[in-house]
Design a protein around this nucleic acid. Structure first.
Lengths: 140, 140
DNA sequence: TTATATATAATAAAAATTACTATACAAAGG
DNA sequence: CCTTTGTATAGTAATTTTTATTATATATAA
């Protein structure tokens, strides 16, 4: 575990962010919980271990991480922003029944568009909605 | 113009929605303004012509239209949901400088994923972010 | 034309996010 | 190692976006 703390400390330093206890813990949480949690979820779960952790810290930290390109922000629904530590390009599928968000592999380089020639693309997102296999079989 | 009212009346009836004056006007606005407006924008713009139009009507109507699959909801940023009347599959590009949202053609049928086999897909979305050609040339 | 159900307007409430400020902590220099 | 300086945190208040509530108005069908 010492290893993880050192790894996150190094990464934060590299990005010009101070390796505070809270920041390291939030990175640790996101690594251990690749379930695309919302800020609210992160806060309520982490309060169990870090009772003094505050809402403002979570929001500010997540925003700082996104800006430093350490995290990806996922906006599928307007009423919840989700976060993930996985920076490798992939798509998302959100099940409308159980609410789970699934990852799926996708090669974004294949997607080239005439109409966007001359545009500078910084961020590519793809997400589907529907019902997952699990919920479909449960229905029968 | 009479023609448009009749067209929207028919469409609303077909979907089981009463063709009220407000609903027809909102459809008319979205047809004439394919700029992906937010609820707030629709409300403030339409108040010029329909001063008594209320926030609740706009939100309720837009939600009803999305549910009836007459409109598409675009969530690129968490703090603004945008709406468009164009139901033909396409992608979106949002310029981080000027804020404009551009459409681009895309054949979603090409996008098939092994990992989503057995999943029921109801909705496919793709959006990019970056800087548009217009803003890039202005910068020089 | 009247009865019935749904839609609207106006306001209040809710949920998510951001701003503010005093205190606490991390990094650098003596 | 201690002090200084700047940044981060916690707690709270404020903001923004969206939804709920309710009385009135409107559309449809008998």
């Amino acid at each position: 575990m010492r290893n993880a703390v050192e790894k996150f400390t190094l990464e934060l330093n590299k990005r010009g962010l101070r390796p505070s206890h809270q920041r390291i813990k939030i990175l640790e949480y996101l690594t251990n919980n690749p379930c695309h949690p919302t800020a609210e979820k992160i806060l309520s779960e982490m309060k169990k271990e870090l009772p003094t952790l505050s809402k403002s810290t979570v929001y500010k930290t997540l925003n700082a991480f996104v800006e430093a390109q350490m995290l990806r922000e996922i906006t599928i629904e307007n009423n919840e922003v989700r976060y993930e530590y996985n920076l490798i390009d992939h798509g998302h599928f959100k099940c409308e029944k159980c609410g789970l968000v699934y990852d799926f592999k996708i090669d974004f380089d294949i997607l080239q568009f005439e109409e966007l020639k001359g545009f500078k693309i910084n961020d590519k997102n793809i997400y589907f909605k529907g019902v997952c296999k699990n919920c479909l079989t449960k229905d029968i």
